[in-house]
Simulated assay, not measured.
Amino acid sequence: MDSNTLLFFILSLAAGAGLGAAVYYSLSKRNTPSGNTQAEATVLVERIEKVFKVVMAEGYFTEIYNYQHDKSIWNLINDKKKALIIAKAKVLVGYDFGKMRFHVSGSNRKIVIDYFPEPEVLSMDTDYKFYDIEQGWLNRFHSDDYTSILNEAKQTMNEKALQSDLPRIATNQVQLMMFQLAASMNWKVDLQLPESNRKDLAEYTSYRPTDAEIDSLNPRRD
């Protein structure tokens, strides 16, 4: 291959590479969404704690929350805002064993429970959707309104969970687990609870029929 042919070959490669780069740049620019989107996230770990919490029951709840707020302007105009919120939640109920007090009688191979905590909501995963949002000219929704509505809906979910059979299921589950685990190691569990503690736990040791009730969907007015 003479020098002229080699030079032509190199120039052809360079031209082809340049054309390919131009085509790629044009296509990538065409497929790139217009605008300049920037996102930045900062995660801060405040503290880490050791816990001994055991989930014994989980339940799924749906709440229909009808919100309405009326605002009177000079007693002449009634300006209102309202929204329909459907909230769904997965609630985990169990025990925080860090709150339990006990001592061990090694000679009798016995674990004596001096205080047994009540079941509690350990976590709640929630999902909210807003429907039929209406607002007036002056009485409008703000970020604080949404925060307040969601907090109240979550509090209602928490109360409903504790009023359901979840705490009773959790209590029966944890006692079954403790007695079976102790028996498998030839130990015994002795509940020597104070009278007040025994009374608090008495309502969680037996089941009651779960009645399905439909709450009224009348608007809640502030």
Score class of each variant (00 low, 15 high):
Phe141Ala: 09
Asp144Thr: 11
Leu176Cys: 04
Ser148Ala: 15
Glu118Val: 14
Asn172Leu: 12
Leu150Ile: 15
Ser123Asn: 13
Lys110Leu: 08
Val104Ile: 13
Tyr146Ile: 11
Val174Gly: 01
Gln180Met: 08
Arg140Asp: 10
Lys154Tyr: 03
Thr147Gly: 08
Ala182Arg: 04
Thr126Gln: 10
Lys99Met: 12
Gln155Ser: 13
Met178Glu: 08
Met157Cys: 00
Asn108Cys: 01
Gln175Asp: 08
Leu122Glu: 00
Val112Trp: 00
Glu152Ile: 02
Ser164His: 06
Ser148Asn: 14
Lys160Asn: 14
Asn139Asp: 07
Met177Arg: 09
Pro167Tyr: 07
Asn108His: 01
Asp145Ser: 06
Ser143Lys: 11
Ser148Arg: 15
Arg140Ala: 11
Arg168Pro: 06
Asp145Pro: 02
Met124Arg: 03
Asp132Phe: 01
Met100Gln: 14
Ile169Pro: 03
Ser105Asp: 11
Met178Arg: 06
Ser143Trp: 04
His142Ala: 12
Asp144Ser: 15
Ser143Pro: 02
Gln173Asp: 12
Ala153Arg: 14
Leu138Ile: 15
Ala153Ile: 15
Asp165Leu: 07
Ser105Pro: 04
Asn158Glu: 10
Lys160Ser: 11
Gly98Asp: 15
Asn172Ala: 05
Asn158Leu: 14
Glu118Arg: 05
Leu150Ser: 14
Asn158Gln: 10
Leu162Ala: 08
Val174Arg: 05
Met157Asp: 00
Met157Val: 13
Glu134Val: 01
Tyr115Arg: 07
Gly136Leu: 08
Asn172Arg: 13
Glu120Leu: 12
Leu181Gly: 09
Ala182Ile: 05
Asp165Ser: 12
Glu120Ile: 14
Asn108Ser: 03
Asp165Cys: 00
Gln163Cys: 11
Asp165Gly: 00
Lys110Glu: 11
Ala183Cys: 04
Thr171Val: 09
Phe102Lys: 02
Leu150His: 09
Pro117Tyr: 04
Met124Lys: 08
Ala183Gly: 08
Ser148Gly: 11
Arg109Thr: 00
Tyr128Met: 09
Arg109Asp: 01
Asn139Trp: 02
Tyr115Pro: 00
Arg109Lys: 15
Asn151Cys: 03
Glu118Lys: 09
Asn108Ile: 03
Gly136Val: 11
Ile149Thr: 04
Ile113Asp: 03
Thr171Ser: 12
Asp145Gly: 09
Pro167Gly: 05
Met124Gln: 13
Arg168Asp: 03
Ala183His: 10
Arg109Val: 03
Asp127Gly: 07
Thr171His: 09
Leu181Ile: 06
Ile113Lys: 01
Ile169Gly: 02
Tyr131His: 14
Pro167Cys: 05
Pro119Gln: 04
Thr126Asp: 02
Gln180Trp: 03
Leu150Pro: 06
Pro117Arg: 07
Thr156Met: 11
Asp125Pro: 02
Asn151Lys: 15
Tyr146Cys: 08
Ile113Arg: 07
Lys129Trp: 07
Thr171Gln: 10
Ser107Val: 01
Ile133Arg: 13
Leu181Asp: 09
Lys160Asp: 12
Tyr115Ser: 14
